[in-house]
């Protein structure tokens, strides 16, 4: 087995361990909270017998260890329980929310990561030029701007042309592919742009600074001495050797972004994971919250693992 494979296996092991701990933590967390599910079920004036019956029905009268085992058992079946709010399975609701968040993630986050990195690298190459200062200034400005404010600016400025809430027009009559596509594209424009602007800043800044550092490395001088052209020196030599911080930031950003953008989704009423979180919190919908919590932790762990794998693939020194 190569060093890289060993490294990846080790990381997989620790990712699984962390996932297990996180899931257990969520079990403890939601049981350590004051009161239990009964307090939140809408049973005013229940008699003690009724409460007991309900506790039994929900399984929370059993010893904690048993509950813990059952918790994992149902998890293994994909059973996250029923939402307090509408008595629907948490899993189904969560999946719908994830399906709504994904396009935002791809259009907003992924594109902004790519563009931010390109811009940062270009700015780093021409350090000190007017273009560099313009790009860095813009990135700083966007980076420091509160998201909700950015979102409101977009709504105020552009909602004449683009709808500012929801994923689609519920009254759309034409069900043809293009009509539906245009409608969706119109709806996603503002939230996606908002997320993109928010994500762009840190990537441009990190890419710029790691590129600056890489360009000063001795091996870049070797590359130039070899007669390579600028493009090759900037990308294949400098950027390629300075890519790790960007990979780390990308996987972290994606891991969290898939858990939804609470602020953006609230402003644009985008029914994704972020908005589901807000709703669950305000309805004290504990099973739903627990489901979301699980989903977010697992995705963060998964993306971190992906980041580790990419490190090992991209930089031979990592596996040492």
């Amino acid at each position: 087995m190569s060093k890289r494979q060993k490294f990846v296996l080790r990381r997989l092991g620790s990712a699984l361990l962390i996932a297990f701990l996180a899931v257990s933590f969520s079990f403890v967390l939601f049981r350590a909270l004051p009161g239990d599910a009964i307090n939140f079920s809408r049973v005013p004036n229940a008699t003690p017998e009724q409460v007991e019956a309900l506790r039994h029905q929900l399984g929370i009268d059993r010893p904690l260890v048993v509950q813990y085992g059952l918790f994992f058992q149902s998890l293994a079946h994909g059973d996250l329980g029923l939402s307090f709010r509408d008595q629907q399975p948490v899993l189904g609701t969560l999946l719908v929310a994830v399906r709504n968040t994904l396009p935002l993630l791809i259009l907003g986050t992924v594109i902004a990561i790519v563009v931010g990195t390109l811009v940062g690298v270009t700015a780093g190459y021409g350090q000190g030029t007017a273009r560099d200062r313009l790009m860095t200034g813009l990135a700083m400005l966007l980076y420091s701007m509160p998201v909700q404010w950015l979102a409101l600016l977009l709504v105020v400025g552009l909602s004449r042309w683009f709808p500012s809430s929801g994923v689609s027009d519920p009254f759309l009559l034409d069900t043809g592919f293009w009509a539906v596509f245009t409608d969706r594209a119109h709806h996603i424009a503002l939230p996606a742009v908002c997320i993109a602007l928010m994500v762009f800043g840190p990537f441009a800044l990190v890419a710029r600074s790691s590129q600056l550092e890489a360009l000063a490395d001795d091996h870049v001088l070797t590359a130039r001495a070899k007669g390579y052209g600028n493009r090759r020196v900037v990308w294949r030599e400098a950027f390629r050797s300075a890519i790790l911080p960007i990979v780390t930031l990308s996987t972290l950003t994606l891991g969290f972004a898939i858990g939804g953008q609470v602020l953006v989704e609230s402003v644009f009423s985008w029914p994704g994971v972020g908005l589901a979180t807000v709703r669950a919190v305000s309805a004290r919908d504990y099973p739903m919250l627990q489901g979301i919590f699980l989903f977010i932790t697992l995705s963060v762990v998964a993306f971190n693992f992906l980041g580790d794998v990419m490190h090992a693939v991209l930089d031979p020194r990592v596996a040492e």
């Binding site: 001795d218 091996h219 001088l221 001495a225 070899k226 007669g227 030599e237 050797s241 031979p316 020194r317």
Partner: peptide
């Protein structure tokens, strides 16, 4: 100038440790 670098004149320098690209 690029066409003569490395083909006509090459260099080995001070930073022997870091003069090679770590990822290739």
């Amino acid at each position: 100038a690029r066409t003569v670098r490395w083909t006509h004149a090459a260099m080995v320098f001070q930073g022997a440790m870091n003069a090679l690209n770590p990822v290739h």
